[in-house]
């Protein structure tokens, strides 16, 4: 197996973030339209068609690719926004679409066979059989792996599938299998799968009680921070709860994934691309994270130790984890 340089895939919530990512050394930028067709349907975020066209020009001039995420699940009786997103992606010339829904994969494969298709993490394809299914049935060329696998499992997986794999290396961390989580809609009625949001800001309330900050989602208290504690999103799976008489972050601490020091292992595991999470984050975050990973990827490719890079200031709760890549996480 020839070791190729890892491709760095970076988030862009706005045209400004896209330029920041490209200028900081992204090989590819992923983004979404400003509607419910993608899993970061946050207020004030994302691209209209004209902004995508401009972004494509900017990225292509500088040798970067643009990937369009259409990775929520089309609503029954209302496929229009999703099929139109795929059509527009083909018309505008994006380098690939990132899809999750089987019906939409089927539509894209039949209607735009030449449009490159990646499988979103939202499809939760976590094993060779499932990945081969999407490759065989819909000509998917790359799979974004769910954040449930260890590096050893990824290496094993890469030997049994005919497509590229992309893995998350930095940013927010889903602890549940992505695309198979309805915690958000249980509390708010809005979910990643149906509305493209998780723990939506519209249902979040921060209440200051003296020197403490309480975060509420819908009708539920998700967390409470003392003045000395760093805060986190009131995402359900990063909340503090009581189980068996004990208060803890049962699902996951407020923390960000960061495996910048594992890049050589991921290369050896046969991974093609690295993904930085954070389309909802500011362009300062994008610039900082992308620049750090650009250097790390180049070093890893040259066989130089990656070294320590401090990204603490942009991590959630100012803490980091290697997540599922290490088995003890389970």
């Amino acid at each position: 197996m020839t070791t190729q340089k890892l491709e760095l895939v970076c988030p862009a919530g706005t045209p400004a973030a896209l330029r920041a990512a490209v200028d900081s050394g992204a090989d590819a930028v992923y983004l979404g339209f400003r509607d419910e067709t993608n899993a970061r349907n946050f207020p004030g975020l994302n691209f209209n068609r004209e902004e995508l066209a401009d972004g494509l020009r900017y990225a292509h001039q500088k040798g970067a690719k643009v990937l369009l995420a259409i990775n929520s699940f089309p609503e029954a009786g209302n496929p229009g926004p999703w099929t139109k997103a795929v059509d527009d992606a083909a018309r505008l010339g994006v380098d690939a679409v990132i899809l999750a829904d089987v019906g939409l994969c089927d539509y894209a494969a039949r209607t735009h066979p030449d449009l490159r298709r990646h499988l979103s993490v939202q499809a939760s394809a976590s094993n060779p059989e499932a990945i081969n299914f999407y490759a065989r049935e819909f000509g998917v060329r790359r799979v974004v792996l769910p954040r449930v696998l260890t590096v050893a499992e990824i290496a094993d997986l890469n030997k049994s599938i005919p497509v590229e794999t992309e893995v998350f290396v930095f940013g927010g961390l889903c602890v549940m299998a992505e695309g198979r989580c309805a915690l958000s809609s249980y509390a708010t009625g809005k979910s990643p799968n149906m509305t493209g949001v998780c723990s939506p800001a519209s249902h979040v309330r921060y209440v200051e009680e003296g020197d403490r900050l309480t975060s509420r989602l819908g009708e539920f208290t998700i967390n409470r921070f003392d003045s000395s504690e760093n805060a986190g999103y009131p995402t359900l799976c990063k909340g503090r709860f009581v189980a068996a008489g004990k208060t803890s972050y049962l699902f996951e601490d407020p923390t960000s994934l960061n495996v910048i020091d594992m890049l050589p292992d991921l290369m050896a595991a046969g991974v093609t691309a690295l993904k930085i999470e954070g389309r909802q984050r500011g362009r300062a975050y994008v610039a900082q994270a992308v620049a750090a990973f650009r250097e790390a990827v180049d070093r890893a490719a040259a066989g130089i130790p990656v070294g320590r890079v401090d990204l603490t200031s942009i991590t959630e709760g100012r803490r980091q984890t290697a997540g599922s890549y290490e088995k003890a996480w389970r």
Binding site: C181, L183, L250
Partner: peptide
């Protein structure tokens, strides 16, 4: 509502 690689019973 959700399934994970991580066991929360064990973690508790």
């Amino acid at each position: 509502l959700a399934i994970s690689a991580r066991c929360y019973h064990a973690r508790s």
